[in-house]
């Protein structure tokens, strides 16, 4: 299945949309199409209904968290150094904003081909986390989009029933994000290291402050 051909076909038939082909460097060869949020539903409907494509089976909907990161680049600039203009190497840091990405894997039951991946990203990870829901197109996205809302925080507009799926309704965090910190559960390990050791040392020092002179484990 030629993804370039599919991309041109969709761009020809869905007015106004611009797709981006995201190459996949691994040996799996599963490249994907990135779409913007405005035309996502139209692209999805076309993928599902077009005669030669007929991607009627949305198999998997995944959320991925890309936190914001700084990318440093070495750039040559001309600067005045001790009165002489020279070419100096400078490290320029650009901040890439974080985003939450949603990936849909589509197959065709009728034509028995697939998969193709369709990707969408939010604008950032804080306030602008809205994406259009593809549940009206493929019913199988219903529970999976609810899970992405629960664990990542992406709000899907147009979803018939957007509530938390796995955590309880009063839970306020989005646990699968990379910056989520687990609550301190007083984990015990006989040979503690890293985070567990740090917390255990903290508990020990707190206990010693409360009950000074009390030796050993209770």
């Amino acid at each position: 299945m030629n993804l370039e051909a599919i991309k041109s076909e969709i761009e020809a038939n869905v007015p106004g949309c611009r797709l981006e082909l995201v190459a996949n460097p691994s040996p799996s060869g599963q490249h994907s199409l990135r779409t913007g949020a405005e035309h996502a539903v139209a692209v999805a409907v076309y993928l599902r209904d077009a005669e030669d494509l007929r991607f009627d089976f949305c198999s998997n909907v995944t959320g991925i968290d890309w936190p914001s990161r700084e990318v440093s680049q070495k750039v040559k600039v001309r600067k005045l150094v001790d009165g002489v203009e020279q070419e100096v190497e400078e490290v320029r840091k650009t901040a890439l904003p974080g985003t939450l990405e949603v990936v849909y894997h589509l197959f065709s039951v009728e034509k028995k081909h697939g998969p193709i991946s369709l990707r969408m990203s939010t604008i950032d990870r804080d306030a602008n986390v809205h994406l259009p829901s593809l549940t009206p197109v493929w019913r199988s996205a219903e529970l999976q989009e609810r899970e992405i809302f629960d664990l990542f925080g992406v709000v899907f507009d147009g979803h018939p029933d957007l509530r938390r799926l796995l955590m309880w309704p009063d839970f306020t965090d989005h646990p699968m994000r990379r910056d989520y910190v687990d609550p301190d559960d007083y984990e015990y390990e006989p040979t503690a290291h890293d985070e567990v050791l740090r917390r255990a040392q903290q508990h020990r020092s707190e206990a010693d402050e409360e009950h000074p002179g009390e030796a050993g484990e209770r």
Binding site: Y186, A192, A200, Q201, E217
Partner: peptide, 8 residues
Amino acid sequence: WKAPLVQI
């Protein structure tokens, strides 16, 4: 239940 403290 009391949290076991690691002896360090």
